[in-house]
Amino acid sequence: MLADPIKVQIPKSYETLPVKDIKLYHHPENAPEATPVIVLTLNRPKQGNAFTIDMMHAFELVYPMLDLDERVKCVVITGAGRMFCAGADLDIGFPSGGKRERLVDHRDPGGRLNLCIYRCRKPTIVALNGPAVGLGMTLGLSAAIRIAHASSKYGFVFARRGITMESNSSFFLPRLIGHSNALYLLTTGDVYRGDSKHFGSLFQEVIEEQPSVLKRALELATNIAEKTSVLAGFMNRELMWRGKQTAEETHLLDSAVLYHMFASKDCEEGVQSFLKKREPRFSATLEKDGLPFYPWYHEIDTGSRPRADTSEKAKL
Score class of each variant (00 low, 15 high):
135 L>E: 12
112 R>M: 05
98 G>T: 12
103 L>G: 03
108 D>V: 02
94 F>L: 14
115 L>R: 13
104 V>E: 14
104 V>K: 12
101 E>R: 12
107 R>N: 12
96 S>L: 13
139 L>R: 04
124 T>F: 06
108 D>W: 02
107 R>C: 10
97 G>Q: 15
111 G>E: 06
119 R>H: 04
136 G>C: 07
138 T>A: 14
142 S>I: 04
114 N>H: 03
134 G>M: 09
96 S>A: 13
141 L>C: 10
113 L>D: 03
113 L>F: 08
105 D>Y: 07
142 S>C: 06
138 T>F: 10
116 C>I: 03
106 H>F: 15
131 P>M: 11
106 H>M: 11
99 K>E: 15
125 I>K: 04
116 C>F: 04
127 A>E: 07
142 S>Q: 05
98 G>E: 10
121 R>I: 06
98 G>Q: 09
116 C>S: 05
106 H>I: 10
135 L>G: 13
100 R>T: 14
109 P>N: 11
103 L>Q: 13
95 P>S: 08
142 S>Y: 01
106 H>G: 07
129 N>F: 05
116 C>M: 13
113 L>W: 01
105 D>H: 09
142 S>H: 04
94 F>P: 01
130 G>D: 02
95 P>G: 05
108 D>T: 02
114 N>K: 09
127 A>N: 01
134 G>I: 00
99 K>Q: 14
103 L>F: 14
106 H>L: 11
125 I>D: 11
112 R>S: 00
114 N>V: 05
137 M>S: 09
128 L>E: 04
134 G>V: 01
104 V>I: 14
121 R>P: 06
106 H>W: 15
103 L>V: 14
98 G>V: 11
137 M>Y: 01
106 H>D: 05
105 D>C: 07
136 G>H: 04
105 D>M: 08
98 G>W: 10
106 H>C: 05
126 V>W: 02
138 T>N: 11
